[in-house]
Simulated assay, not measured.
Amino acid sequence: MLETAIELMQSGENPSVSDVAEAAGVSRATSYRYFPSQAALVDAVVDAALGPILDWQPKTVQADELVADLMRLSLRRIGEFEATFRAALRLSLDHWAKSKAGTLGAEAVISRGHRVSLLQQAVAPLRHKAAEQDLDRLTKGLSLVFGIEAFVVLKDIWGMKQEDVEEIINWVAQVLISAVADKAGTTLTSA
């Protein structure tokens, strides 16, 4: 069922649990046993699409290299599963709109936030060198370019191709890291 859901989302759909059950040739009851809501289904598909990103571990002690490594892995994967991440974003925006309108009710919402812990790991070498406020701003600033939202802006508004998107995002990330390191009067290593 998960593979079917991934295929549907990769084709641009935002399938319901019933849609996945039908496409996978299983009963709705079985499908709902595995995915009690559309949010649970989308969460599972997003986690599968994130795959190796969720297993990323720091391999160096330099913040700029850590962020570059995380971005390299992540941007390719986001590009590969772009339709899936866009479908998840679309559902998240729909949940937000329903919440604001008071029509969300008890509907489960998709979870978000993997980027927070990943980015915190990537900037960790600066933890004892930069001011806590600057490190917090850096992590939040990096989160603006680490995810599908940056792809939407750069591809849809600017008409950029994947490799150009990656170059811009990597450049922005390095500028942010350098600014924090410069302000702290430090190098980017933890040594």
Rank of each mutant, 00 (worst) to 15 (best):
P52D: 15
E3K: 09
V61G: 15
A63K: 03
V42D: 02
L135M: 13
R33M: 05
E166V: 14
L119Y: 10
E163T: 00
L70N: 06
F85G: 05
A88Q: 05
E149K: 08
K161V: 09
D55K: 07
V61A: 15
V67F: 09
A191Y: 13
T84G: 06
I148W: 09
T30S: 14
I169M: 11
L144K: 06
Q174P: 01
V180C: 07
H114W: 06
S16D: 05
G25H: 00
G159Y: 08
G185V: 09
L135V: 09
I157T: 15
L176S: 07
V46F: 08
Q120W: 05
G102M: 13
T30F: 05
V26M: 04
Q174V: 05
D43V: 01
D156N: 13
L41T: 02
A21Y: 01
R28M: 04
F35L: 00
V17M: 00
E65I: 11
R76C: 01
F35Y: 10
L70W: 08
L104Y: 06
D43I: 06
T187Q: 14
V67L: 14
V67Y: 11
V61D: 14
L70E: 00
K155V: 13
V153F: 12
T186H: 08
V45F: 05
T189E: 15
E167F: 13
Q38R: 11
R76G: 06
A108H: 03
Y34V: 01
K140D: 10
L41V: 01
M160L: 15
R90K: 15
G141I: 07
A83W: 02
S92Q: 13
A87C: 06
G102F: 09
T30G: 08
E82A: 11
K161Q: 14
Q38I: 00
A21T: 03
Q57V: 13
V45D: 03
V123K: 03
R28S: 15
A122Y: 03
D64G: 11
D94E: 11
A106L: 14
L73T: 05
L176P: 00
L142Q: 04
L126A: 03
I53D: 01
G105H: 04
E3M: 12
L66F: 05
A101M: 06
L91D: 03
S11Q: 10
R112V: 13
L91I: 10
K155E: 15
L188H: 09
P36V: 03
Q121P: 09
P15A: 04
L138R: 10
G79I: 06
A83Y: 04
D182G: 04
L70K: 10
G79K: 12
V172D: 07
L135N: 03
A184M: 11
G12H: 11
S143I: 06
S74D: 01
L119T: 07
D43Y: 07
E65T: 14
A63S: 15
V180A: 11
W96Y: 14
F81N: 08
T60M: 08
A179C: 06
R90L: 15
T186Y: 08
D164E: 10
A122T: 04
A48I: 02
V175H: 05
D47I: 04
K155C: 11
S74G: 07
E82H: 10
A131S: 13
S37M: 01
S117Q: 14
A131M: 12
K100G: 02
L8S: 00
I110E: 08
H128A: 07
S37H: 07
Q10E: 15
K161Y: 10
F81H: 06
Q133T: 15
